[in-house]
Design a protein around this nucleic acid. Structure first.
Length: 212
DNA sequence: CTCCCGATAT
DNA sequence: ATATCAGGAG
């Protein structure tokens, strides 16, 4: 089967090129990772990392965020974009954590996704990278774009792409797969002008075949 | 499908 | 100066 050979080659490449890759988001605990990941919506990890040191110095716990003044919180996170939504979501999310989950993060994706500001992408990042719990595959814009280019999926819907990927990527590699794909997306298979000539897996890439 | 928004690449 | 980047909610 050709597609099976392709995914094997892709995984082999990712493992070799990005061994033990993890999220670029800085955090000292899973709760901080949750906040950082909420902030990373439509924003680069690097930019999030610029605001989180001061943010986590000011607000330590879910109850600190739950009590936060929204205008003050907005100032801390402004540069990550969509700051009004994010500030509101973080406060509401932390209120729910305090009131309904005893200040702890639920370790179940179905529960996490109920919290404001948390979709499957964020939940998968936190469970996978924060707790080592494999709940799914993180499908961010890089994973979506690269998966389509490679021909691993034909869908534009992140949920559908996640389903397609879960069928062909071995479960033990789900977390590292996304982290490696994101790095690969930043340095080679970027959105604007992918560096196909430098790409080591162009021989199994549908996009390369169609554009060369 | 639209709105949310600042930062950076072109 | 403008296009593009980068998820979630209603």
């Amino acid at each position: 089967m050709k597609s099976k050979d392709n995914i094997s080659a892709i995984i082999k490449f990712l493992k070799k090129r990005y061994p033990g890759s993890t999220t670029a988001l800085r955090s000292e605990n899973p709760f901080q990772l949750l906040i950082a990941t909420i902030l990373s919506a439509q924003c680069t990890d690097e930019r999030v990392n610029k605001v989180t040191p001061a943010l986590f110095k000011r607000y330590k716990s879910p109850s600190d965020f739950a009590r936060a003044d929204i205008k003050e919180l907005e100032e801390y996170i402004k540069s990550t974009g969509f700051y009004h939504n994010k500030a509101k979501n973080i406060i509401e999310c932390c209120k729910m954590l305090v009131e309904e989950y005893n200040g702890e993060l639920p370790l179940d994706i179905e529960e996490l996704v109920k919290l404001p500001g948390i979709g499957r992408k964020t939940a998968n990042v936190v469970l996978g990278n924060g707790f080592g719990i494999i709940s799914g595959i993180v499908v961010d814009t890089h994973v979506l774009r690269i998966s389509k280019r490679l021909g691993l999926t034909d869908s534009d819907d992140p949920n559908r792409v996640e389903e397609d990927l879960m069928k062909i990527v071995p479960k033990e590699f789900w977390i590292s797969f996304s982290n490696a794909m994101i790095l690969f997306g930043r340095e080679i298979c970027n959105a604007r002008k992918p560096l196909c000539s430098e790409c080591e897996i162009k021989n199994v890439c549908r996009y390369f075949k169609e554009n060369n």
